[in-house]
Amino acid sequence: MTPQRERRGAELVAKYPEARSALVPFLQYCQAEDGYVTDQAIADAAELVGITPAEVESTASFYSLLFRHPIGKHVIQVCRTLGCMLGGADELREHIRTRLGVENLETTADGAITYEEVECLAACDRAPVLQHNLEFVYNVTPEKFDSLLETWRRESPAAALPAE
């Protein structure tokens, strides 16, 4: 474990009565650092909270915001549940898939953008919605998406899925 990670791990553990509670926050921190939850992060987490790496794996695999394989610097998560569907999400998803040339949970060929279809994001009043790197974008139209995509492509965010 890097000293920095160890420090952050200790801070997180200190927030809880039992160390294991710091597991997911710690993995989120590692993911923000490394881009995804690496094998090393699993091992570090196991050591930090005192459980087996397999238990860490089991827990991590439960949560959809933890990725165990490399993902893009941009994660685009488009809502597909009822409210957004009524607002045109099916058509929007179709557009984005074609535009990016990927299917659900795939990353563009250049490795930059990971596309995911997700369930209700709690913004149904401004449907359809998506999150770009966990920031909400409301009332997304195909045109709006295209212009945002250009902006995003020019940016180089520090972390696709920030921990804090």
């Binding site: 809880y16 997911v24 989120q28 439960f62 949560y63 959809s64 915001l65 933890l66 369930e119 921990a163």
Partner: peptide
């Protein structure tokens, strides 16, 4: 008070 962020699971 300790805020704790989930990680994606309804």
């Amino acid at each position: 008070i300790v805020p704790h962020r989930g990680a994606g699971a309804y």
